[in-house]
Amino acid sequence: MNQENISLWEEPIPGGCHWSGILRRGITLRLADVSGNANAAVLFFNQEEKLERYNMADTLKAQHTFHLTRGHACYSDMGRIFCCITADTVGWHDTVCGLSDRTLIQQKYGITRYQEHRNQMYRNGLDGMLIELGKWGLGMRDIVANINFFSKVTANDAGELTFHRNHSKAGSYVDLSFEMDTLVVLSTAPHPLDTNTTYQPGTVHLAAFTTSSAAASECKQIAENLRGLHNTHRFYPPCGGAL
């Protein structure tokens, strides 16, 4: 019986909302942009020791890149790999622009309150992340530089950043294949540099399935990732086995 790519669960996360959960090693999480122009702000934490978390600087310098795509790995601040990007139909994911906050959303789109607008209120990325972090005993001090999946931002020679609207199309997806037992925290609020003048964050569909053996080798093409994977596998030695 083929035990690869077995579907485990699916869940849509509406635009502006938030989600968190544990992804075990050997599991792949697919993030899909349902209607186009979605943004999925994501942070990773070691499920066993949450002081270990995603490190943007180590992720970029280890792989000599400014953005993430297929074949790249997402590193922790302990030199271990949370997950590898094993499939990607988007081609570029922002790593440097962080989260939208309440002030930014109000300045761009106006003020809405739950009392009048209920679930149509305008949510921001920072508040969504904090709500999810609080469920796991974490808080503001645990907010670090995040990944913005589906969003593309480039820099010119002067260091000025440009947001590329219409970068992600409807049906686009990215697969994250986990090498560690990982707490994933996610917000689907707008990217902080989104140029849309109307508050229209897109839905992100999540689907978890077992990682195939072919996908598991995707990020081994970069030499530094081999060392990162070695560090990660040492964290999970087989029972009774040597490191």
Rank of each mutant, 00 (worst) to 15 (best):
G125Q: 03
D142P: 10
R102I: 12
D88Y: 05
T103I: 04
S151F: 09
H164W: 10
N2D: 15
K152D: 04
P14H: 02
D58Q: 14
L243E: 11
L31I: 02
F66A: 15
T195R: 06
A62H: 09
I6T: 10
G21D: 04
E52Y: 00
N119A: 12
D157C: 09
V90A: 01
L133V: 01
H72M: 10
A214V: 13
H233R: 12
F45G: 00
P190D: 01
S20P: 05
S213V: 15
M180A: 05
F235M: 14
W9I: 07
A158G: 11
T210I: 07
V42D: 00
R113C: 15
C84P: 03
M1Q: 11
K220L: 14
P14L: 04
E224C: 11
S172E: 13
F150Y: 00
I27G: 03
H205S: 15
L8Y: 03
T203P: 01
K135E: 02
G16Q: 03
D181H: 14
T232M: 01
I22E: 05
W136K: 04
Q3A: 13
S100D: 02
E116A: 15
A158Y: 06
I81K: 07
R118E: 13
A87Q: 07
S212Q: 06
G91Y: 00
F45C: 02
G110E: 00
T59R: 07
R53H: 04
I27V: 11
H67I: 08
S7E: 15
H191A: 07
L23F: 00
G16T: 05
D181W: 01
T86N: 13
G16R: 02
K220W: 03
E224P: 00
S217C: 08
T95C: 13
F209P: 12
G139T: 06
D127K: 07
G26W: 07
S35I: 03
Q63I: 10
S212M: 05
I85K: 08
H164S: 12
I111T: 12
A223H: 07
S35K: 14
S212C: 06
T197V: 13
A145D: 11
Q3C: 11
F209W: 14
L206E: 06
N166R: 03
A170L: 13
F44W: 06
E52W: 00
N39P: 02
G159E: 02
G26F: 13
F150H: 01
A40F: 07
E132H: 05
C84Q: 14
V153K: 09
P190K: 08
